[in-house]
Write a protein that binds this DNA or RNA. Structure first.
Lengths: 239, 239
DNA sequence: GCCGATTTGTCCGTATGTATC
DNA sequence: CGATACATACGGACAAATCGG
């Protein structure tokens, strides 16, 4: 299942995060890594390119692979790769709780189809959830799931983790996630569910999720309290 | 210079954006693409994986490579990969202008070093610029450049494009860019330079840029008017 | 400035595994 | 079951950048 390169990636990532290779240090050469993990150079290179893509390291032609990673200290809700709300909360050392405030089926009409990316006429399940971090209501998640693929959803599943249900029980794998981050004014609904204080704006993450066969199964609008929101990203030139 | 895979990537990307392969269509198989571009399968796969990473397509085991791309219609200032402000403005069909409001050398003390990632004692050039899109002041850019690497900066260069100067005149190549997106309250300075109306928050993009040898040359805080800001991103599971 | 060793970058060809149809 | 298509891994060849002698 998990490729060999994935194990190498994880081993190196842990070494970097654990300080074995500190900021600005060089990793062992590809040749050495080949021996350590007894594999071909291409395999090492694949693991390295995954580290490059995530901003852990930068490879320098003719010289070596230098560590760019430095631990973050700030206390925010970091949005990162593909992971569940619960995973993200755990990674950020928050105690998470979920309150389901809406749970009803609906069908995508023309305008909803255009907005969400689902084909017109698709049966959907609409779930709105308030996410509490350390007891404070900070995120309002408005999900739409494709009901014919994400079948038999219940309020209980929504309260626990829909992702866990999708990937565990239904044996589907979310492979691609497209996201768009904007800043929007707080609505009456935001004020009703979130503790915004005197902020009048929110960070809004709109995302579409696709499973392994390329069909879209989810459209989500995540409305975040601005004080506890952070999104991190690394862009690398040349793939 | 440009690898062969880069040409294949560009050709396919243009085909996708041009509608040759519309949403949900399949690309030709890797085998066919090998023949079309007369290259090895690895090379085609490398181009494909670049398309996957950018959300253009998703590859489906045993089936083919399906197009996920659909043209965006909204009129916002999309932040994407590594590109200059001028390039981004052009891509979004804005007329861009820049006003330099600060231009002075300084040296990184301990607290600035910790915040920006530059070593303590580094000579820097501080440049603040207001970015006008279609005549409206929408972005306040606060840059710090490493003065010993980005040498001989002038107000004129700052008014035109520092990136063009770095990559053209100085022949340096910015390879990695780490970004962090947050939402912050508007400061007095924001109100002084930007036309925020009654918004009291901004989208803030903090970024660090590294050149080919891994040294950091730039630290930038980009403060965006919330109405015209959008950041897009694609996350793919399994590298 | 040149040369040679080291290291990363690109590309090729092949073999095998696995999912889809 | 066989054909097709993508996924992973191996090993090798050559190019290009870096660095030390």
């Amino acid at each position: 299942m998990a490729g060999k390169f994935e194990g190498i990636y994880e081993a190196l990532r842990e070494d970097i995060e654990g300080g074995v290779y500190p900021y600005q240090a060089f990793l062992p050469s590809e040749h050495v890594l080949c021996e350590r993990f007894s594999c071909a150079r291409n395999t090492v290179r694949r693991a390295l390119s995954a580290l490059v893509a995530r901003g852990y390291v930068q490879s320098i032609h003719g010289k070596g692979v230098r560590v760019l990673y430095r631990p973050s200290v700030q206390r925010s809700f970091f949005v990162g790769g593909i992971e569940t709300f619960t995973e993200t909360a755990a990674r950020n050392h928050f105690k998470a709780r979920t309150r389901v405030v809406r749970f009803e089926p609906l069908v995508a009409d023309a305008s909803l189809a255009a907005k969400t990316g689902f084909p017109e006429g698709t049966a959907l399940m609409a779930i709105d959830r308030v996410r509490l971090l350390d007891g404070v209501a900070l995120i309002l998640d408005k999900n739409l799931f494709r009901a014919d693929i994400v079948t038999d959803l219940t309020r209980e599943i929504a309260e626990a983790s829909v992702y866990a249900y999708i990937e565990g029980k239904l044996q589907l794998r979310i492979v691609t996630s497209k996201r768009r981050i904007t800043v929007e004014r707080a609505t009456r609904e935001d004020r009703e569910f979130l503790e915004l204080g005197d902020y009048d704006c929110l960070a809004v993450v709109t995302s579409q999720a696709f499973i392994a066969d390329g069909t879209q199964v989810e459209y989500t609008i995540s409305r975040h309290h601005p004080e506890r929101f952070a999104f991190e990203d690394t862009a690398v030139r040349g793939v």
